[in-house]
Amino acid sequence: MKIACLSGKGGAGKTFAAVNLAAVAGECCYVDCDVEEPNGRLFLKPEGLETLPVSSLLPGFDPGLCTGCKKCVDFCRFHALVYVKGKPMVFSEVCHSCGGCYLVCPTGAVREEPRTIGMLELGRHGDVSVITGVLDPGEASGIPLIREAVKRAKGLSILDCPPGSACPVMESAMDADYCLLVAEPTAFGLHNFKMVYELASLLGKECGVLINKQDAPYGPLEDFCREAGLPILERIPFDREAAECIAAGEIAAEKLPRYRELFTRLLEKIGGGL
């Protein structure tokens, strides 16, 4: 079973939830899909690290075979190809590696060349297999890296997704069996929460809500969840001790019994590992 931790807004507590869920789940995988700034490893401190380079495909052209028909240029909906002075130019940061140019070329002048964009870091934290996607600085798209990271998730897996509700989030949550939506009870938090809920609904995912950093229930969020039929699974209050754990790079569920209980309960409600 794959559980995706999502939140429209950054800083809502995705990594806090994902790391703590992994810590109480026993034998499981924790996958950091937030490849632009993976930080679950700061808490899980994986040991026995090995790294694997990950590449994406970029078109290359054989000038001897290219007839200048521009079928590839016309096909590319991202406009990553421009035909100038008898040869195609590629804008790698615009290319989505769809392979379309390779398929439409009538003379076989296009080949796909791998280009390293980052790495997977594999290690262990006790029973938890920690998979971290790390995108190279300056790379525009981490999608192939997220795809490789999620592919390695076996058994009960907690997917720590990127913030927002755009392509990288969709890629991270696409194969999930359950979406845990981490909500911040503020107007801004609710706005972005609605966006990520819309995405999870479009993907046809079963969802539940974890409200984090709550001082008092936030009416509009409560109303939205009730009207959407979204179960609020747990609520985490503002808590100095939890904040101190996070600041020290420690896992609340390993230090504070009430968090071990809360996340164990949460996992049971989601149905993971049962």
């Binding site: 240029v73 590319c76 909906r77 991202f78 406009h79 990553a80 190809l81 421009v82 035909y83 100038v84 804008f91 615009v94």
Partner: peptide, 18 residues
Amino acid sequence: PAAQAQGGAGMQAAQFLV
């Protein structure tokens, strides 16, 4: 032709001018 492009308008317009 690139005026309403969803993305890559710069390259599409450049191709048109070239």
